[in-house]
Measured scan of single mutants.
Amino acid sequence: LVRYRTISKIPQITLNFVDLKGDPFLASPTSDREIIAPKIKERTHNVTEKVTQVLSLGADVLPEYKLQAPRIHRWTILHYSPFKAVWDWLILLLVIYTAVFTPYSAAFLLKETEEGPPATECGYACQPLAVVDLIVDIMFIVDILINFRTTYVNANEEVVSHPGRIAVHYFKGWFLIDMVAAIPFDLLIFGSGSEELIGLLKTARLLRLVRVARKLDRYSEYGAAVLFLLMCTFALIAHWLACIWYAIGNMEQPHMDSRIGWLHNLGDQIGKPYNSSGLGGPSIKDKYVTALYFTFSSLTSVGFGNVSPNTNSEKIFSICVMLIGSLMYASIFGNVSAIIQRLYSGTARYHTQMLRVREFIRFHQIPNPLRQRLEEYFQHAWSYTNGIDMNAVLKGFPECLQADICLHLNRSLLQHCKPFRGATKGCLRALAMKFKTTHAPPGDTLVHAGDLLTALYFISRGSIEILRGDVVVAILGKNDIFGEPLNLYARPGKSNGDVRALTYCDLHKIHR
Rank of each mutant, 00 (worst) to 15 (best):
69 A>R: 14
70 P>R: 05
72 I>T: 15
76 T>N: 01
83 F>H: 15
86 V>Q: 01
88 D>E: 05
88 D>P: 01
92 L>D: 01
92 L>M: 06
94 L>I: 08
95 V>L: 08
98 T>E: 03
99 A>V: 01
102 T>S: 01
112 E>T: 09
117 P>T: 12
124 Y>G: 01
127 Q>L: 05
127 Q>H: 06
131 V>A: 06
134 L>P: 01
139 M>E: 01
142 V>S: 01
142 V>F: 09
156 N>F: 09
158 E>W: 01
163 P>Y: 05
165 R>P: 05
166 I>S: 01
167 A>K: 01
176 L>F: 14
177 I>Q: 01
181 A>I: 01
181 A>V: 01
184 P>M: 01
187 L>G: 12
190 F>Q: 12
193 G>H: 11
195 E>R: 12
196 E>C: 10
198 I>V: 11
203 T>C: 14
219 Y>H: 07
220 S>L: 05
222 Y>H: 04
224 A>V: 14
229 L>G: 05
232 C>Y: 01
235 A>W: 01
236 L>G: 01
237 I>V: 11
244 I>R: 01
254 P>V: 14
257 D>L: 04
263 L>C: 01
263 L>H: 01
266 L>R: 01
267 G>N: 01
269 Q>T: 03
270 I>C: 01
271 G>C: 01
273 P>M: 01
274 Y>L: 03
279 L>N: 06
280 G>R: 03
283 S>H: 01
283 S>E: 01
294 F>V: 01
296 F>G: 01
297 S>D: 11
297 S>Y: 01
298 S>W: 01
299 L>M: 08
304 F>D: 01
309 P>I: 01
332 I>G: 07
334 G>H: 06
341 Q>N: 04
343 L>S: 12
350 Y>S: 02
350 Y>E: 01
356 R>G: 08
356 R>T: 12
357 V>T: 04
363 F>I: 13
375 E>F: 09
378 F>L: 07
381 A>C: 04
397 F>D: 01
404 D>F: 01
406 C>E: 01
413 L>E: 01
417 C>M: 13
417 C>L: 14
418 K>R: 07
419 P>W: 04
424 T>G: 13
429 R>Y: 03
434 K>A: 08
438 T>Q: 13
441 P>I: 10
